[in-house]
Each structure stands twice: as C-alpha cells, then as structure tokens.
Write a protein that binds this DNA or RNA. Structure first.
Lengths: 255, 255
DNA sequence: CTAGTGCACTGGTCTGACCAGTAGGCTACG
DNA sequence: CGTAGCCTACTGGTCAGACCAGTGCACTAG
C-alpha cells in the first residue's frame, strides 16, 4: 500500500555528531568514569571542527551529566560516573511545567516504595535487614527523648538510609533511583512546612513506630502486609500536606 | 556544635546564569509554549554577554527539551511544550551505563502499570472505559483472523492506546510518563525478538484475552483483581525474554 | 489578486584573541 | 638533600568578528 515512505531529513548539526561520538564512547564503556577527554583544542583537531562546535557538544554532554570540565584543568574534561542528576533535573522540570501536584508525587512514591518493600520482604538478606534496623535506631536517636531535643536533619538522613536499605534489598536500581528523585522533589516542596510543624516530635515517633511495624513484616517475610503498612505510613505522614481533593486518590491505594 | 559549615563555592559560569534566567521564565509560565525567544544577537545585547555564551546556554536548554531553534528562523528560538524526551534520554542513558537489566525494566513496568490499573478501576469514567474497549477492539482487528494476517505494528499501536487510556483514567501524569518511557526502552531492547517470533499471532490472541479480563475487572470496579491480572499478563508476555535468573524477582510480584 | 523575486535577518560554524585558573616542574632557599 | 614557593605551558571560559545557507516577509511585476 503506497510507495516508499519518506522521512523528513533533519539537518544534522555538526555539534550533534560530536555529541553522538563521545556519548557512544562513554555509554559503550570505551571511556570509563574518571578517564579524561582530550582538551577542547585537541578535540577540535581530531574532529575537524571549530572550537565553538566542540564546546557546544561538551555543554550538551555536561547537561546530560556525562562529563564535567573545570577551567584550567590540564587533563581535559572528566568522564563522570552515572548520576541521576539529569533524571532529577528533568523530573523537576516536569513537576513544574506540567504542574504535577503534590498528590501525584506522593502517590507515585506510595506505589514505588511499597513495591520495593514487597520485593525486599522476599529477597532481603540478613545484612540488609540489620541495615534497616540500624537506620530505625538512628531515627530513634534523632527524635530524642526529651521534648524539643529532636534533630530534624539527622532524622531525615536516617529515614533516607532506611529507604535506601529497602530498595537495595529489592534489587531494582530503577526503583531506587526513581524513588530517590521523587522523594527529593517532594521534600523540597514541603520541607518548610514540616520544619514549621510544632508537633514534629510526635510525627517522628509515629513514623518510627510505622517503620518498626514494616520491618517486622519484612522480617516475617510477609510482603503484602509490609507493603500495605508502608503505604499507610506514607499516607499518614504526607496526607496533611496534600490538597483535600486529592486525598481520595491516595486512599485508593490503601484498600 | 561546630562553627558555620562552609560550602565549596562553585564558580558560576556566565552561560549558567543565562540558562537559569530563561529556564525560570519558561517554568514560571512567563514564557508559554509556542512563544519565541529573542534572537541570539538580541539576547546577547539584553544579557550583556557574547554570542557564544548565549549559544551554549541555548544548547543546554535545548538538551533539556525546553527550546528548539531552526536555522534561518527570523522569529528566534521557540519555547516547546513539555515533552518527556529529556526524561527518556536520561533513563535510556541510565539503562545503558548502569546496565539495567531487562528484568528490572519489566519489573518496573509491572509495578507502575498495575498501580495505574488499580487506580483506574476506581476512578475511571464511562468514556475512558469505552476508550479502553475501543483499543482492545483495534488489537483484535490488528491480530486478524486468518493465519499470517497479523499487523504487528498496528497491534503495538493499539496496545499503547489501551495503556494510555488506563493511565489517563488513573489520573497520575507521572505514572503515565514513566510507564511510557520505560515501555519504549523495553520495546527497543526486544522488538527484534518479538518480530522474529513465529507464534506472534498466538501471543497476540493471548494478550487480547488478558486485556479483556483486565477490562472486565475494571468495569466491575475490582482494582486489586485488575492489577493482579495485569501483572500476570505482563509477566506472561515478557518473561520469555528475561534471563531465567531474574524471573523469580518478577514472580515475586504475582503472589 | 497572485506568482515570483529580493532582502533583511536568522542560526550554524569558524577563526583568533584574551583572561583567569591549574598542575607540575623548576628553582632557590633552608 | 628536602621542601617551599615560583614559573610556565597549558587549560577552559568568554568575547568579537566574520562568513554561509537558510528562512519569512514585503515588495514587485504580471
């Protein structure tokens, strides 16, 4: 049916070809993290293009988080280990321009986090379980015993450590990175309100209790229970900051 | 505890300031999709920097998918509507350099997709349900009745349309975009093997049946059932391509 | 009123220049 | 002989100016 379908030929700019070449070298492993690219002037000779073209290509690669260059560094641009920075950036942009609501973000975390916990309950090792316990212990320490002695920052770090241990146990790096990115976005949106809460310590204690229940379910290998508990915990923690019109969509995940 | 903690001062390059300014204008809505930036020469006057600096900034913005420029266009660079292209790019990079396995990708989709279906079962409208039915109808048409008459491409399109209808009904744009991105990555990894399968038509028929079961559960409002069915369907469809050592992690989601 | 042409301007690229900063070798001092 | 401090050859960041192919629009000729 019909003759050959022609595709529009997009003019390929020189800098794009440069980007492709270097990107391919990095992603294929020909260039490993820590290794150095030739200097811009050297690249411009090798690639037979002007320096501005080389520089535009390097800017793109830098925006993608693949390389970094420092002024004056005689060794040339450095190939970076992968970091979710670029992913974080584009998700943050997405959250702003698409007006992602806090409800959607929290919902996303409820889904991914509980999935990670479900998997962790089946696949975790004893070491990973110990890691989780250590994190909850640190949360307890940060919450303090006397009123007003809570260390919010340390509490947050311990909370992150807990979730890191869980996603590590789940064995899925993609879930790990996505939850991490979304958690940061959520936190940046509401950290001010959390800091201002006058019942912080009570919130912390409730959170710790939730974490303990989750750990117990993980230890027992009851994935569905652990997942349900974690969704409930996250709902309790974040729901106060979510618009009321959206909480019903969150509760839909609690069954 | 301790004096003021100093942070390393990173030298802020001129082009970064330019990026920030334009990015802020776009993300805050001061510049809407379709609108135009001033020309490079105009920008270089307004910002009091050289043209190369302006260009490097534009390259970064283009890499982030915020802007597009065509040679010769007298109206200047165009502000783009958000597209997950940048997200797609960084996830693809992630998949390559972090060596994300097919198993992890499929697992991720099982989690997000089933969550979307769970939500859709509770929140869907009649129109959205009709949309899903239409998509399955298209799948049936593409699969054909006579042996060998299957239209793989049309089948794929209809499948996508189905999942689009579902995530739209779920009301979570973040889930929508992430599943979409990961689906493309998965497809690119295995499309060749799917095309080569000699029992394609049988696979299609099984897939259609699965989709019908899911729709029925959605119609009945039984979210958990719909979610479980969808995980099972995806497992059946993709498991043959996943390394055997990883299928157990997938089965952990089937309970 | 329309088909065609010309022009002003665009983005893409190159060249060449200057600056501040870095690393590593060299020197001079202890 | 060891080391502190300087020197220099480079780096990346930025700017200025030039050229080209391509675009859209206004103007013109039919």
């Amino acid at each position: 049916m019909g003759g050959p379908r022609f595709e529009p030929v997009r003019a390929v700019r020189a800098y794009e070809r440069v980007v492709e070449q270097i990107e391919e070298a990095i992603e294929s492993g020909a260039l490993s993290p820590g290794e150095r690219l030739p200097s811009e002037r050297e690249l411009m000779v090798q690639l037979a293009v002007g320096r501005s073209t080389v520089r535009e290509a390097l800017r793109v690669l830098q925006a993608r988080g693949l390389v970094r260059s420092r002024p004056g560094d005689p060794h040339g641009a450095e190939v970076l280990p992968f970091s979710p920075a670029a992913l974080h950036k584009s998700m943050t942009t997405l959250a702003r321009v698409e007006q992602l609501s806090l409800g959607e973000l929290v919902q996303f975390r409820m889904v991914l986090d509980s999935a990670a916990i479900l998997l962790a309950a089946r696949l975790r090792t004893e070491e990973q379980l110990a890691e989780m316990n250590k994190a909850v212990e640190a949360m307890r320490a940060a919450a303090g015993t006397e009123p007003g002695a809570a260390d919010t920052e340390a509490f947050g770090r311990a909370d992150v450590a807990f979730h890191d241990a869980v996603v590590a146990a789940s064995g899925n790096k993609l879930i790990q990175i996505c939850t991490d990115v979304v958690r940061q976005i959520v936190l940046r949106q509401i950290s001010a309100r959390i800091d201002a809460a006058d019942d912080r310590q009570a919130l912390m204690r409730r959170s710790i209790q939730h974490h303990e229940e989750v750990i117990e379910a993980i230890r027992a290998g009851d994935g569905p229970l652990a997942a349900r508990l974690s969704r409930r915990a996250m709902y309790d923690y974040y729901a106060p900051y979510v618009k009321e019109s959206e909480t019903s969509a969150l509760r839909a995940l609690l069954e």
